[in-house]
Design a protein around this nucleic acid. Structure first.
Lengths: 232, 232
DNA sequence: CAAAATATCAATCCAAAGATGTAAGACAAT
DNA sequence: ATTGTCTTACATCTTTGGATTGATATTTTG
């Protein structure tokens, strides 16, 4: 029995018809790929995806109106297994970050050699996620920056450090939306005791009510820190 | 005046003395790098970093006790500009993700060719962030998965969709810790009106009090969605 | 051991929050 | 024109929340 290797079916979405034609020809030349269809708008493209169920989608990200990013998100939401490769003119860190965040399996610049696009297609078709090295570096700048900011919120003299372990328990239950009665029941202590703890928490966190206490806790990663502490 | 190109100073931290020696020799052979020091534990290494201020740090991530990840976090907190390259035996997606999250500028496997490590050193010394292609793919699997989960919280029939725009405004102010009076003042409406809105919000979100409403809002990305909507 | 911090409980008081019902004017859709 | 939704508003009542003071047993720590 002769083994039949099926070509990977690719759908191309690009509002620039010239560029679209160029990409189509490039892919048609490759023996391992088949162009399943083309579209010049995101909406048309999404309809074609539903119809033809391609393995790969090349999505131009610089389209007007319904922008490419949103289109990628919608394609992901369909869950038809279509792997989207973003094709963009910009190596903007934030754009790369957002594209990868919503589920793009690759990101290639239009200015890159066509061999690079073919390589990306190969990799993504094989189930990998592909980003050119230069863009990877860009991506990580943005990625690490976003976590750096998160940590700044953590430092800045954290008032949570002054809480006793019992107060932490109470605050934890507060951040789950419990009222006095609920907390008292869960900790097997009286409601008045809970009131005492809660009042002490307010003093230490310098807030006026439970909502502000909960917000302070959430904004300062209280839950995560607590879980980390518990794990030790 | 003869131009003097200074060698990039590298500090190596690895509890395996054999491996440490190997890496040291490898780097010593390179004309563009200088081994500023070596250490066999994270604590010793951190002290040497404070002392010698190297541009690069190669950190073995499979060390016992104070594990390598925690050490990287501490080095980053020093803010001495030392760029850390993680050296690990494992291509575990979660490990790569966490290393990059806390600020590693590179991640190289021990099993990789030594040329790969030198290449990583070059790239990172030049201010870039370096991950081998294979590990990039691994990283993104984890990265995208974490956001996939976040979106599940978003879908699941979101009760926030039922709020009117005015109720959204009120909820927004609730999530900032305002009480009735504060909200009334900011929206230039009476306190009783605010009460009406808040009660309607409770009904729609199926909660009993403001803390639960705020928690629901935060757990369902209310703020982000609102900002996204405003931007349109 | 003594002093300080923690955890528990109670009483009281006032303020704030929440539940419920009613209603009028604005505005959009049909 | 009429219906429906939204926004505004008020009254009333009950419940919950928050502040304060004081007290006791236990634990931690210097």
């Amino acid at each position: 029995m002769r083994e039949f290797k099926r070509r990977t079916r690719v759908l191309i979405i690009d509002d620039n018809t010239d560029h679209l034609r160029g990409v189509k020809e490039l892919i048609t030349l490759e023996s391992s790929f088949d162009v399943a269809g083309t579209a010049t708008s995101a909406n048309l493209g999404i309809n074609l995806i539903k119809k033809y169920r391609p393995e790969l989608v090349i999505m131009d990200i610089n389209m007007p109106e319904k922008d490419g990013l949103q289109a990628i998100a919608e394609i992901e939401k369909l869950e038809l297994g279509a792997k989207v490769i973003a094709l963009s003119a910009y190596d903007d860190a934030d754009l790369i970050f957002r594209a990868m965040k919503i589920g793009a399996k690759g990101y290639v610049l239009k200015t890159m050699a066509s061999a690079q696009l073919i390589y990306a297609l190969d990799e993504v078709a094989a189930g990998k996620i592909y980003l050119p090295t230069a863009l990877t570096s860009r991506f990580f700048e943005h990625f690490q920056l976003s976590f750096r900011e998160e940590e700044n919120a953590n430092s800045a003299e954290n008032l949570l450090a002054y809480l006793t372990s019992r107060e932490e328990e109470v605050l934890d239950l507060l951040t789950q939306g419990n009222n006095y009665k609920g907390i008292a029941g869960k900790l097997f202590i009286s409601e008045t005791t809970v009131k005492t703890h809660v009042n002490n928490i307010f003093q230490k966190l310098q807030v006026n009510d439970r909502t502000q206490a909960v917000l302070y806790a959430l904004n300062n990663n209280f839950t995560n820190k607590r879980r980390a502490k518990m794990a030790v």
